[in-house]
Simulated scan of single mutants.
Amino acid sequence: MPRAGLSPDAVVDAALEILDARGSDGLTLKAIADATGVAAPSLYKHVRGLPELRRLLAIRIINEMADQMGSVVMGRAGNDALEAYLTEYRRLASQYPHRHALTERASYDDPTFAAAAERLVNVAYAVVRGFGLEGEDLVHAVRSVRAAVTGFVSLEQGLGYRAPTDTDASFAYLSRVLAAGLRPSPTPSTA
């Protein structure tokens, strides 16, 4: 009989707290069992094991990111939306570095995971569409924005920026460069 009050969502809640405090290496069924007050085998009544729990964590984190990032770009367009998107991505990755690391490595052949990932990517598409891009240019631009911000954050978290230059100034520069690069190229005129 499952413990009263314990559910898959409650197990994910406990796992999120452990992930935030201890990182991915500290995310064990024993740690989660201790946090929820059950024996480790009892967790199998709620999740099928650590791989499923990691999948559920990734889905929860990505959905929360989509909600948060969507709310900060809502009602904005162009440079303003891009700056809000980049800034919120960086803030979330800095505030929750272990969540960021887990989601950047996550890849599951699962419709629920795919739907969560699509929601998050659609925020980037909404931002980039504000620059008037369409078709393949839109896809290339979204990939470029995501690669740039993910790369910046990864280098920043990994202490890849050792020069004394202010990283906030570098991040603002990145935002300006991306905004300038997202402007559609003029169509060559035919004479």
Rank of each mutant, 00 (worst) to 15 (best):
Y89S: 14
T28A: 01
R54D: 05
A21G: 08
S154A: 15
I32W: 02
T167C: 02
D109G: 07
S42N: 04
H140N: 14
P188C: 01
V121M: 10
R176W: 02
D25I: 09
A4H: 07
N122I: 00
K45M: 12
A40N: 03
R91C: 00
I62C: 01
D109M: 08
V139I: 15
L82V: 06
D80F: 00
E156C: 02
R176Q: 14
A148T: 04
D20K: 03
G181H: 09
T28R: 07
A191M: 06
L56G: 09
L182I: 09
G158H: 04
E104A: 14
Y89C: 14
A31G: 04
A81K: 09
G132Q: 03
G135C: 03
D13V: 07
A106L: 05
Y173R: 15
L29N: 05
A116C: 08
H140M: 13
T103G: 02
A66P: 09
V123S: 02
A58G: 11
K30I: 03
A163P: 01
N122T: 08
A39S: 13
S189W: 11
N122V: 00
A10K: 08
E83F: 07
D168M: 05
V123D: 06
L182H: 03
V12A: 09
T190E: 14
A117F: 04
R119S: 13
V139E: 15
L138D: 05
V123T: 04
E88A: 13
S24Q: 14
L86R: 01
A4Q: 07
A81E: 13
L155D: 14
A81Y: 12
R76L: 15
A58W: 06
P51D: 11
D34Q: 11
L86G: 10
V38L: 04
V139L: 15
A148C: 06
T165I: 12
Q95F: 04
A172R: 14
G37T: 04
I62K: 02
N122G: 10
A93E: 07
S154H: 12
R146H: 07
D13I: 06
P41W: 10
M1E: 13
S71A: 14
L27M: 08
T112S: 15
A106D: 12
S71G: 11
D80E: 13
T103I: 14
G151A: 12
V153I: 14
P41M: 04
R22C: 07
S24N: 11
N122M: 12
L43D: 06
I32G: 00
S175R: 03
E17W: 02
L159V: 08
R143Y: 06
T103S: 10
E156M: 06
P97G: 02
E83C: 07
D166L: 10
G181L: 13
S175A: 15
S42Q: 05
A116F: 02
L102E: 07
A172I: 12
S170N: 11
Q157F: 05
E83M: 04
G135I: 08
T87W: 04
D168G: 11
P8K: 03
G26S: 12
V121R: 13
A15L: 02
G49H: 01
E118G: 10
L155S: 13
R55Y: 00
A117W: 03
V73F: 14
G132H: 06
D25K: 10
Y44A: 05
S24H: 11
V121C: 05
